[in-house]
């Protein structure tokens, strides 16, 4: 862990908000889902984990939330080792899951209110909830409707609004664009840009190469639990990311630079 931290500090960047230090996870059935993963996300930075199904992206995010304990290594949020102090660590994380479902008997506003309060934000007004929903692109008329009538994309937007409202320094997004149509996808990208400007450290998983390249500061390609490539967007300028990605996917043995 010190190695990773000092590496980053040495490079003159701000101290990292999210750090994975030699993180490994072997599930009970023997699957090695994550193999010595190290990465760091600084405030004001977006890190995109690219990888196919089963690459270990969700496992990484779950380790940051301490939904599972690491087999070895540490997931660190703002200096807090998550499996040692999960409750404190979670105060600093906003999270959007892969398939946002929420409470289908509650309206969008009710869901927002409940989760905002759970996240420790007790002072929001109804107007602020509406503003957050409008910000993620949910039309006014849907705010008071129960979620059972919502499409996958609309629920996803609610989930993103909940994450924004928590106003945590770190944001974990597990395939956040999967349910969004192109227009909503674009809006989401600009929203991420805003959040980055606010100084949030954002770690997102995706298999959408195009969006990753568009928004991320750093892109890591994962395959079979290993980080097989990690490059900043500057380093990637002029390179064909699609080609790289497919290469790494096909020859998983290729060594990260």
């Amino acid at each position: 862990m010190n190695e990773t931290l000092s590496q980053i500090d040495g490079s003159g960047r701000q101290e990292s908000m999210l750090v994975a230090a030699h993180l490994s996870k072997r599930y009970e059935d023997g699957v090695l889902a994550l193999d010595d993963l190290s990465l760091a996300v600084a405030p004001g930075e977006i890190y995109a984990m690219l990888g196919g199904n089963g690459a270990g992206k969700t496992t990484t995010i779950n380790l940051f939330l301490n939904f599972i304990d690491p087999t070895s290594g540490q997931a660190i949020v703002d200096g807090i080792v998550t499996h040692e102090e999960p409750l404190t660590a979670r105060q600093k994380i906003a999270y959007v899951s892969e398939n946002v479902m929420l409470y289908t008997n509650f309206t969008a506003l009710q869901n927002l209110d409940y989760f905002a309060r759970l996240g420790g934000q007790n002072d929001y007004s109804k107007e602020e909830y509406r503003t957050a929903l409008l910000r993620v692109g949910l039309q006014e008329e849907a705010h008071g409707k129960r979620l059972r009538d919502f499409s996958k994309g609309m629920r996803q937007k609610c989930g993103i609004a909940i994450a924004i409202l928590k106003d945590a320094p770190a944001i974990l997004l597990d395939e956040p664009t999967s349910g969004l149509d192109p227009k909503a996808g674009l809006e989401f990208i600009s929203l991420l840009d805003d959040l980055r400007s606010e100084g949030k450290a954002i770690l997102m998983s995706t298999h959408d190469i195009f969006r990753a390249k568009q928004i991320a500061n750093t892109i890591g390609i994962m395959n079979e639990g290993k980080l097989v490539m990690q490059k900043t967007t500057e380093e990637l300028r002029g390179e064909n990311l699609e080609e790289l990605y497919v290469n790494y996917m096909v020859s998983g043995m290729a060594v990260a630079s």
């Binding site: 939904f67 979670r90 906003a94 899951s97 946002v100 479902m101 929420l102 420790g120 928590k166």
Partner: peptide, 14 residues
Amino acid sequence: ERGTLKLTFANAVP
């Protein structure tokens, strides 16, 4: 099943 358990425990909920 609805995913709300994950969302809940992404907060500091004992």
